[in-house]
Simulated scan of single mutants.
Amino acid sequence: MTHKELTAELAKRLGWTQARTSLVLESAVSIIGENLANSNSINIQGFGVFEARLRQERVSVNPVSKQRFLVPPKITPAFRPGQTVKDKLKNL
């Protein structure tokens, strides 16, 4: 589903204009992004948890030259689905 399709579906369900729905959706995404940047987790009940996870440093190997190099640690976003989402996916 694209951003445009999601906005249209939300607008239809809420009875709002697509412009208003798009603004609300962009605000929600912005809030989630800001919280993840600050290493806070976001729990949406019945949907899941967005969180920032620290990936440890590791040694990687270039397959062509066989040269080993160190990949530094980094913070990555992660999503853990809630039980409701897991149950819906299981029943497909």
Rank of each mutant, 00 (worst) to 15 (best):
M1D: 07
T2F: 05
E5T: 10
A8W: 02
E9G: 08
L10I: 06
L10N: 03
L10Y: 04
A11S: 07
K12I: 13
K12G: 13
K12A: 12
R13A: 09
L14D: 09
L14N: 11
G15Q: 14
W16M: 10
T17W: 10
T17Q: 09
Q18N: 07
A19P: 02
S22F: 03
L23K: 05
V24K: 01
V24W: 01
E26F: 03
V29L: 13
I31H: 00
I32R: 00
G33P: 03
N35K: 05
L36C: 04
L36G: 01
A37G: 08
S39M: 08
N40K: 09
S41P: 00
I42M: 01
N43M: 11
N43I: 12
N43A: 13
I44L: 12
F47E: 10
G48E: 00
V49R: 00
E51C: 06
R55T: 08
R55P: 00
R55N: 11
Q56V: 15
Q56D: 11
E57M: 07
E57A: 09
E57R: 09
E57T: 10
V59I: 14
V59F: 05
V59K: 02
S60I: 11
S65M: 03
K66A: 15
K66D: 08
F69R: 08
L70M: 10
V71G: 07
I75T: 09
T76Q: 06
P77H: 00
A78G: 13
P81M: 06
P81Y: 13
G82T: 06
G82C: 09
V85M: 07
K86L: 13
D87V: 11
D87C: 04
K88G: 15
K90M: 13
N91A: 15
N91T: 09
